[in-house]
Design a protein around this nucleic acid. Structure first.
Lengths: 302, 302
DNA sequence: GTTAACCATATATTTTAAATATGGAAATGG
DNA sequence: CCATTTCCATATTTAAAATATATGGTTAAC
C-alpha cells in the first residue's frame, strides 16, 4: 500500500464515480480502476459497490475512508512539523545559567526576546555554575549556557560575550564604609573577604584576584561561599565583605549595602557558550539574537 | 511522498547506516540513497547528517521519525479495521423490536448469542411497532427488526420466522374464569376485549380476529390499547380481557391472570425482517444466527 | 431499441524505482 | 604515512510499475 492508493480511494469515495475522480486526479480512468483493485486485493475486501450509475462505499470502505483521510492529514502535519524544526521554529533548547547570571537584565531580555520570536521552541532552564555548565555543554546535556568567561579549556566550545558587567563592593549596612558613594579597592585592604570556590568560576575568580593585586594587596579570605548568590546572606550574617557582579545588587537586603568601585574595577563579563559542532537551527537563532545584543557591537555588514 | 519513503527512512534511522538498512529492506544501497534524497527534497530539509562511519538524525529528522512511525502504525490499524468490518467483526446494527417481542426468550437469546460471537459490533436497539418498523427498514433507518409477521407489502424485505408463539387469555384475577386451567376460545364470546389498533400490527390482529371467527363469534371491542404491552395494565384496571402472546405473561401483575387456550389457539409468531438488498456482513451473521434458531428447522443441507 | 453512462480488461507506453558499476571522502590499521 | 576499509553519492542501465490508449460489456435512460 502507498499513499497514492489512499489519495485515489478518497477521490473516488468523494466523487462516487471513477471517471470523475480520475479527471480530478489528473489521470485516466483505467489506471485508477487498477490501483483500486490492487488496494482491495491487499485489504482483502471490496471497498466500493459498483452500481450502474455510481459507486458507493461498502461498510469496510466507509471505515477505511475516515482512516485514509486521517492518515493523509497526519502526513501533512508531519511535513509541517519537520519544516518548523528545520526553520528553527520548533525544537528544544536546554539553557544553563551560571551563578547569578539570571539577575542580569540583558540575560533575561535575551530569553524574553527569543521566546517572543520563536514561541514554538521549548526552553529548559537549568541553574548551575560555570564549571559544571562547561561540563554539561561538552557532554551534550546542555545546549547553551550563560557563563562567566573566560572558560578554561574551551576546546570544542564557542563563547560569545554578552555583557561587560562590572563589580561592586558588598558590605554590611553597619560597616564604616557602607555610606560612601564610591570606594577605591585599596580602601578594603584590611577587610575579610567572602569568596566563592575558584573551581566553580575560575575566570571570575581570577578577575577578582588580579584586581586585588592591582590595588596592591592580597585579600584576607574568610569563610567560602558555596556559590555567588549566597555571598549576600553571608555578608548580612557578618562573615565579611565581598565584591559581587553589579546585577547581584538586585538582591536587596536590609543588612547589606552595595558601593561602586572607583579603581581598579574588576570585570564580571557574561557570555554565552555552546558547542562548535552544534547543529540546532533553533540554537543558531538564539546565538544570533545574542550577537545582536553584544556590547560595543561594531556596525560591520555581514 | 509515499509510504515507501517512510519505511526507508525509518530503516535508516534505526540502522544509522544506509547500507545495512538497504539490506534489511531487501534493496541495494543506491536506490535507497536516491529515495531519501527525494524525501529530503520534498520536505526541504536534510533528515540525516552523513558522518563518515554512520549517519545520524538531524533535529528535523528526529521529529519526522516519530511521525513516520505513527503514520505507519495508523496505516496498520486502518488495515486491521477494514478487515474486521469486512468479516463482520466490527460494525453497527440498528435493531427494531415490535410490541412485546423483547419479552420472548428466543429474542433475547439471539441478541445475547450474537453479542457473544461478535462483541465488536455495536447493537442499537429501538422499540416500536411492526408497522413503523417496516417503514424504518424501507427507509434505511433500521437494519433489522423483530416483527409480528406476516408484514404487509413486504416487497424489498425478507422475513424469517423465529418463534411460533401462541396466545393466552389474559383476564382480571377476579374474573370468574381466571382459575381455569385452560379455556376454549368460545367461552369468551360474551366478554369485552381490549385490543391494539390493527394498524400497528395487522398480521397479529388478523390472527386474533380469525381465531374469534373460528370460535364462532365476533368479539365485543372495548377500549383500544395504544400498544400490546399496555393491554396488561388495562386489564388490571378493569377495561376488559384480552388475548396476548404467551411471552407477555412474563408481565406478572397481582390483578391479572393468564389462562391457556384449548382451541382454536391464535398464533403470535415472531420473525426478523430486513432489506433484501442488504450488504452488511454483520447483519448477515445476525440473520444466519437467527436461522439456526428458527422453529422446526428442516435438516436440509444448504 | 438505440444511446449514454460507466467500469473492467487488454495492450502499449512512459515513468519510476531498483540494480550495477564506480568514485570520493574520511577513518583505520599496520 | 600509505594502504585499506567503510560508506554514501553519482552515473548509467535495467526492470518494474504506473499510466495511457483502445475497446468491450452491462445497465439505465430516452
Amino acid at each position: 500500500m502507498e499513499l497514492r492508493h489512499l489519495r485515489y480511494f478518497i477521490a473516488i469515495a468523494e466523487e462516487q464515480n471513477f471517471t470523475r475522480a480520475a479527471e480530478r486526479l489528473g489521470i485516466q480512468q483505467p489506471p485508477l480502476s487498477q490501483q483500486i483493485r490492487q488496494l482491495e486485493q491487499e485489504l482483502g475486501t471490496p471497498l466500493f459497490r459498483r452500481l450502474t450509475r455510481k459507486v458507493e462505499l461498502t461498510e469496510a470502505g466507509a471505515s477505511f475512508l475516515s482512516d485514509a483521510r486521517a492518515i493523509l492529514e497526519q502526513v501533512e502535519r508531519a511535513k509541517n512539523s519537520v519544516q518548523r524544526f528545520s526553520r528553527g521554529e520548533a525544537g528544544r533548547i536546554r539553557i544553563g545559567f551560571a551563578g547569578a547570571t539570571y539577575f542580569q537584565p540583558e540575560v533575561t531580555a535575551l530569553i524574553r526576546d527569543y521566546r517572543a520570536h520563536y514561541p514554538g521552541v521549548q526552553l529548559l532552564p537549568e541553574q548551575s555554575n560555570t564549571a559544571l555548565l562547561v561540563e554539561g555543554l561538552r557532554s551534550g546535556e546542555i545546549d547553551v549556557a550563560f557563563v562567566r568567561p573566560p572558560i578554561g579549556g574551551a576546546d570544542g566550545l564557542n563563547t560569545q560575550l554578552l555583557v561587560e558587567e562590572d563589580m561592586l563592593v558588598a558590605l554590611p549596612a553597619a560597616h564604616r564604609l557602607s555610606r560612601q558613594a564610591a570606594l577605591p579597592l585599596s580602601a578594603l585592604a584590611e577587610e575579610t573577604f567572602i569568596l566563592f570556590p575558584r573551581a566553580i568560576s575560575p575566570g571570575l575568580y581570577d578577575n577578582l584576584i588580579s584586581a586585588f593585586h592591582q590595588a596592591g594587596f592580597s585579600p584576607r579570605l574568610g569563610q567560602e561561599a558555596p556559590q555567588i548568590a549566597s555571598i549576600v546572606p553571608m555578608i548580612d550574617a557578618g562573615f565579611g565583605i565581598s565584591l559581587v557582579p553589579r546585577s547581584v545588587s538586585q538582591i536587596r537586603t536590609e543588612g547589606v549595602r552595595y558601593v561602586p568601585i572607583t579603581a581598579p574595577v574588576p570585570a564580571a563579563p557574561i557570555g554565552i557558550a555552546y558547542r562548535q559542532d552544534q547543529h540546532s537551527v533553533a540554537l543558531a537563532h538564539f546565538v544570533a539574537l545574542a550577537r545582536e545584543k553584544r556590547p560595543h557591537a561594531p556596525a560591520r555588514p555581514e
